[in-house]
C-alpha cells in the first residue's frame, strides 16, 4: 500500500487528534476551575483535602476540606458527568474554614479542592479516590 503526500499528512493529523483526545475528557472540569480562579496561579499549600483512598460505594463518599484563611472553597470531581460538586463560602462567624460532606463519584477519579484566600490568592489540593461501585445510577 502506497501513500501519497496528501494521505500521509491526513494520517498524521488524525494521529495528532487521537493523542489530544484524553485531555478533552477533563475540559469540563478545567472550565469549572477557570471560572472560579480566572486562570490565576494556584499554590500547593494552605489547603487540605481529606478523602478515602478507596470508596466502596460511589454514592456516598465522605470528604472534608480545610483551608485556614480562605473565603471560599470549591470542590470538583474531575471524572463526574457534572464536575462541579460544591462551593463553600465562609462568613464572618465561621470558626474555621473547614467543612465536610458526602459526595457522589461516578468512578475512580481525582477530586480537586481549590481555596480562594482572603488576599485573593488561590491554593489547590487533589486526591485520587478508587471507586468500586459508581454513584451515577444508570
Amino acid at each position: 500500500m502506497e501513500f501519497s503526500r496528501r494521505e500521509t499528512l491526513a494520517l498524521g493529523l488524525g494521529a495528532a487528534v487521537v493523542t489530544v483526545m484524553p485531555f478533552s475528557v477533563n475540559a469540563a472540569a478545567d472550565d469549572v476551575i477557570a471560572t472560579f480562579t480566572g486562570g490565576a496561579d494556584m499554590a500547593d499549600t494552605g489547603i487540605e483535602l481529606t478523602a478515602p483512598e478507596i470508596a466502596e460505594n460511589g454514592n456516598t463518599v465522605p470528604v472534608a476540606v480545610s483551608a485556614p484563611g480562605a473565603s471560599a472553597i470549591i470542590l470538583i470531581a474531575t471524572g463526574n458527568p457534572t464536575p462541579g460538586v460544591a462551593q463553600f463560602n465562609f462568613g464572618p462567624l465561621a470558626a474555621s474554614q473547614s467543612a465536610s460532606t458526602r459526595i457522589r463519584l461516578a468512578g475512580t477519579q481525582d477530586i480537586v479542592a481549590i481555596a480562594q484566600m482572603a488576599d485573593g490568592s488561590f491554593a489547590k489540593a487533589s486526591a485520587t479516590v478508587k471507586v468500586t461501585i459508581g454513584g451515577c445510577g444508570g
Partner: peptide, 8 residues
Amino acid sequence: MAMEPAIS
C-alpha cells in the same frame, strides 16, 4: 454553600 448534583 452552593450544591451540585454530585452531593449525595
